[in-house]
Design a protein around this nucleic acid. Sequence first.
DNA 1: TCTGGGGTCCTAGGACCC
DNA 2: TCTGGGGTCCTAGGACCC
Length: 379
Amino acid sequence: MDAFYASIEQLDHPEYKGRPVIVGADPKAGKGRGVVAACSYEARKFGIRSALPISRAWKLCPQGVYVRPRMNRYVEVSQQVMDVFRRYTDLVEPLSIDEAFLDITGSVALLGPADEIARSIKKAIREATGMTASVGLAPNKFLAKIASDLKKPDGLVVLQEADVDQFLRDLPISRLWGVGPKTEARLHEMGFRTIGQLASASRESLVRTLGSLGEHLYQLSHGKDDRQVVPDWERKSVGTETTFDEDTDDRDLLLRTILELSDHVAERLRKDEYRARKVTLKLRYSNFSTHTKQHSLDRLIQTGDEIAAVARQLFSQFPLNRKIRLIGVSAGDLHRGREDPEQLTLFATSNPKEKLGHAVDAIKEKFGIDSLRRGSQLL
DNA sequence: TCTGGGGTCCTAGGACCC
DNA sequence: TCTGGGGTCCTAGGACCC
């Protein structure tokens, strides 16, 4: 989808159409913390981009429309789009909230040539949501992804097998999946700036210097990618984190925040019937150095109290000699209730705190998320 | 200039077991 | 007095993606 969050805001607020819309943190007149989550094409003319600090965005375009993300709404539209995709093939692999891979190999016999299917999908998305999408049609995932990015917005790029080498030759190596700022710098030092240049390197030399990443990049630079489109995969972790408005070393505030975050993680675990065996606590100090500590348990947990107990224990092992900018709690090594034989005994013992958790969820569902709150959150 | 929040995957060292 | 090789699990950090 094109400028997904910003497009939804323009759709829901017609008065925003044609204006620079910036979705992200509160700019607070240039003092805000956080970054741009998404921005409209009008905003991009001012040099605004995703992940730009919101304070920079404010300097570049103070007259812009600044809005907080409304994730619930974006998820709703995302569902509509994914539903459209599933009318064309069962093999839909969501890559993020606003993009997916579709394997339409088997759809051609039923629905006609691939490029006609692509056009039909774009039209169906526009009818279902009122928004535009960009499509890349290619022999594999990597090429389709690059092709889809090439002519945004409202683009359709069809890449035939025979044209792959020419298509890739002059693209910068940063287009390769797995090449971020660090790897790009290393590759530049090695003398590679374009995908074509990388493709002329020997496989052995790339593997020697970059390990398994080298093998991966060797394949991609030759347009090869045999990864399948996988419609359902198992989630590995659930986490949440928050950056404070001001760095803090207030232990009470930090401990209260740990409990809040733990409750939030627990709520999301319960929603999908997950239990976790690992808890990770993350701290970012005022100098932006980031550290994690994790603990694996010999049992599965699900409630906010259980998660918070482990997180507090981990917190006590951190030095508090600097102020803290960010704190995060995450649950990992997830097990889905029914699939795990151990769960039978857990259900049988029916942990009263788990029951309490479900009751809290039900009350919040019925009366709103602010209807029930821990006493410590009232401070 | 100041750097969010949600994730995945990879690497490397150490403990531990046989 | 000096200690192999194979394997698993755990932890911490880092790169990357959207």
